[in-house]
């Protein structure tokens, strides 16, 4: 059996990032906020970021390498989980499906594809630097 003492913690692992990867930044209320290096994002999967004001954003990339950020809060359940949904494309629109009750949200404009009366906030994203 594995020994627990030899097991690195998630925190250590998360902070060892490749130096030559560009940084992804989100435009928050106080300007551009560096969030992580681009190689931490894998196409089709999101991560969550904590913004200075305490709100949460969900960050994604698609296969073409484009990054998107929307609010992390699933408006149907209130849980901060959208970053953990699966992404996809429907009629050309990139979306994430909530992992809880599966409603889909457009990554570009935050609109819910299954109920247009509901939407989540979106954030501007840019990548800077890197080799």
């Amino acid at each position: 059996m594995t020994t627990a003492t030899a097991t690195p913690t998630a925190t250590e692992a998360a902070t060892t990032a490749a130096a030559d990867s560009p940084t992804v930044e989100i435009l928050g209320p106080d300007g551009w906020l560096p969030v992580c290096t681009l190689d931490r994002l894998s196409p089709g999967r999101g991560v969550a970021a904590l913004l200075p004001d305490g709100t949460q954003a969900a960050l994604f990339t698609d296969r073409a390498g484009r990054a998107y950020a929307i609010g992390n809060r699933d408006p149907f359940t209130g849980a901060q989980v959208l970053s953990r949904g699966l992404t996809g494309t429907a009629t050309g629109r990139p979306y994430v499906a909530s992992p809880l009750l599966k409603q889909r949200f457009d990554l570009a404009n935050g609109e819910c594809l299954d109920d247009p009366s509901v939407s989540v906030p979106t954030y501007s994203v840019r990548t800077r630097g890197g080799a």
Binding site: T2, T16, V47, Q80
Partner: peptide
Amino acid sequence: WAETLNDPERLARFVSFVNAPEAPDPSV
């Protein structure tokens, strides 16, 4: 789970926030 614990790369996903790996999710 044993496979996951043995590999730092595989563990990297288990954080609440990519930019604040130390912080627990305050909504939970």
